[in-house]
Design a protein around this nucleic acid. Structure first.
Lengths: 325, 325
DNA sequence: TTGTACGCGTTATCAG
DNA sequence: CTGATAACGCGTACAA
């Protein structure tokens, strides 16, 4: 494959001139510019980007860490991220690490390696201390609330969003509230769990182990939860469910089993997904698409300005009232 | 940042020796190996991968072209692809091009640029002729049936899968069959449309423009379709729907409107998604996860063996009988 | 088992 | 406006 030197020779100019043409620099005479362009065409030349990456120290690529792409929550964020990356002509490297610490670390190592210009962490098991060690190598943005740190963040306040949801159920007169969560030990899951027990304390209700249901990721899990409920002697009359897909599954299964929503069981979900809109699901919109977009913009700005001052951007949630509460 | 030369100097060895240690080559004495390793540790050294990419001509990265990650069909394929990439220590660059020809071409250019070692095309608007022009620069795999070409493919036979679905409805006694499709002009959509009109001819049924419904991507679209149906004077008594999510939306909306499934309206979907399982949706499983996995393995083998013989791998579909037909 | 010297293909620097 | 030359950091013949 031809290289810049060969182009220069054939066009009768220096490599510098070729490079200038390639990068649209000024100060190239029209004559030489067209000569170079013609030679490029003739030899079917294209740049070897790896050489460019080496000399410039930039790759125009960022990596994103997620556990799994096939979970609605993540795919929505990635959709926004990918859209912005496309606009900015950036590559997006998808690192589906399934929360494996070793693999998550490898992604941060890519930053150190100069393979990428920045990292977006959507969800991780890594501690802030570990992440802090890598901020020296490039901008890092996390889609979680990690407070004052050496890296940036974009987040919604899970605690307060969750409390709002509970309060909403409470205000509507529901006193026996159960709770469906994805992973039991996730970082935002933990926050919601705290919000939940704080709420119970505040309203003087007892903590019921049985009403905490975990590992709910998709519609089928929601269906499973309904059957768990049916088996209980003492059932909640309302459910707060993190993830509209799960809530949707539960509602569908409720219909099939003659459980009336919200008369027998009220449901509030999270994330405002299409299926929820169809079912009339009351939910808390967490601005997921906005999260991906914002995360990219923060990273992008920091790369452009070579500025590593951590930025913290809070997104607002809102309750969407429909008909399941 | 320290480089290999500096490590060599400080460890009292040559750069070759350092390189050998870095790449786990044999013929390095234990003494020197540890000396090098210690120095690397002391200087917090790491390789600049861009230099490695330049000299080796490989990047251990592949790109994948999809229109949008937030469509179940694609996210399932990507999930498999990303899993395999992780196992093989390959980077996966997600190119969400929304079928824009210009952006799709840019990805192929990345192959020419040496930025990536291969490309997986899940869905595209590009013609085979355009793609053929890039096979010289590295392996390309497409997740569509493109016949004998200069690039590889992994696919299910949409024509025959669709005909099977129609035949299944027909065998069950349904004669008035409508059809819901995603994009109207997609490559596999087109094949299904042909299968549909061939089926009508074969069974001597008239073509009803009104029964062809397009732009159905998610649950809400499915709900919309049901209302279109309700408005028709002459309604189909069965529906074949590409995408279980769409079918799910339709079924849910049918329930809400007192339309009995399958008595008033039979439904068969595609892809076997969790929500379909919950609803008892009869569907055609297209082995989507397997498709991503297979696509990666083909690319990977071709990269390893520097072999560009196109491979064509057909995946088998199967009808999953549940209760909506 | 080890080291020297060169090449990978480009951009940056600086002198004209 | 133009060009010579020095980086960028690493892998690898080839020689020892």
């Amino acid at each position: 494959m031809a290289n810049i030197k060969e182009i220069a020779r054939m066009a009768g100019v220096s490599v510098t001139t070729v490079s200038r043409v390639l990068n649209n620099h000024p100060y190239v005479s029209e004559t030489k510019r067209t000569a170079v362009l013609n030679t490029i065409e003739k030899l079917n030349y294209t740049r070897n980007m790896n050489a460019v990456h080496l000399i410039t120290g930039r790759t125009h690529a960022i990596a994103v860490i997620i556990p799994n792409i096939n979970i609605f929550y993540f795919s929505v964020i990635i959709e926004g991220l990918a859209q912005e990356a496309l606009l900015a002509q950036y590559r997006l490297i998808l690192c589906q690490t399934d929360y494996r610490h070793e693999e998550e670390l490898k992604v941060l190592e890519m930053l150190r390696n100069k393979e990428i210009d920045g990292v977006v962490i959507v969800s991780t098991r890594m501690s802030s201390e570990v992440i802090d060690e890598y901020t020296a190598y490039g901008p890092i943005v996390i889609c979680q609330d990690r407070g004052e740190r050496r890296f940036s963040s974009v987040y919604i306040e899970h605690y307060s969003a969750f409390r709002s949801g509970l309060q909403y159920l409470h205000d509507k007169g529901y006193e026996q509230i159960g709770y469906c969560e994805g992973r039991q030990h996730g970082s935002s899951s933990s926050i919601r769990q705290i919000a939940f027990s704080d709420f119970l304390s505040a309203t003087g209700q007892p903590f019921q182990e049985e009403w905490m249901m975990y590992n709910c990721m998709n519609e089928e899990d929601g269906g499973r939860v309904l059957h768990q409920l049916l088996k209980m002697k003492n059932r909640p009359n309302a459910l707060i469910i993190s993830g509209d897909h799960v809530a949707a599954g539960l509602i569908i299964e409720a219909w099939k089993n003659g459980i009336r929503i919200p008369e027998d069981l009220a449901v509030i979900g999270f994330d405002d997904q299409p299926i929820g809109r169809l079912l009339g699901l009351t939910t808390i919109d967490n601005q997921l698409p906005e999260m991906g977009v914002t995360a990219f913009r923060i990273i992008y700005d920091q790369i452009q300005n070579n500025d590593s001052h951590p930025v913290h951007r809070k997104l607002e949630y809102r309750i969407i009232e429909r008909s399941t509460v």
